[in-house]
Design a protein around this nucleic acid. Structure first.
Lengths: 97, 97
DNA sequence: TTAATACTTAACCATATGGTTAAGTATAGA
DNA sequence: TCTATACTTAACCATATGGTTAAGTATTAA
């Protein structure tokens, strides 16, 4: 799994259910690390690692306000996945074939 | 990485460039294992493992004709990824917001 | 029947992943 | 200033991943 905005990184980041859950949470708006962690029965360090993976994949960015770290979703990598997927879409292939 | 048609499995399978290459190759039509292997400077067992990952993710299926194993693309899991991604699409969010 | 072809499986290796607990850092509040 | 909060980092562990070489299996061709 490579780092910094590659399809490898994005797909790799999305292959974990906790990270997909975090992404879906963030799709509703920004959230603190604690808020993101609350649905999962895992430790803060584990969440911290997941966030690092998501950040390195360019899927989230953070802003620190006081001691709270707020995370937001970056949709660009998802757009790249979408673009990659487009070539396999039925409708698209119907146009080609 | 879990097996047998899960989003985990599909995203995990797609996180490797060799496997994405294979998928793109198969998008043009069925191909033998040797044909799929030829662009990559890795051993046959390595390719065999990649194909196993793709097969367990439900992304390909095989048919044996004599000693040649032909692989074909199964688009259903890609459709599931597409469905998962849909909620993050601009146009979709424009409808919601 | 013997040898070549097209694979897969087994055994192994180094590194990555996803979790843990313990310790460290930065900010807020008493 | 001292303590609690909201994190991150470090060290560790078990298992997964992606590669290798060597060996095994099935089919075709000589």
């Amino acid at each position: 799994m490579v780092k910094y905005r590659t399809l490898d990184g994005t797909f790799g980041a999305l292959s974990d259910p906790t990270r997909r859950g975090i992404i879906m949470h963030l799709n509703k708006g920004e959230a603190s690390v604690s808020e993101l962690a609350s649905p999962y029965g895992i430790s803060m360090p584990a969440i911290s690692k997941h966030l690092k993976v998501l950040e390195e994949a360019g899927l989230i960015f953070r802003q620190k306000k006081g001691r709270v770290h707020y995370c937001r979703l970056a949709t660009a990598p998802l757009g790249e996945v979408d673009t990659w997927l487009a070539r396999f879409r039925r409708s698209h292939r119907r146009v080609i074939n």
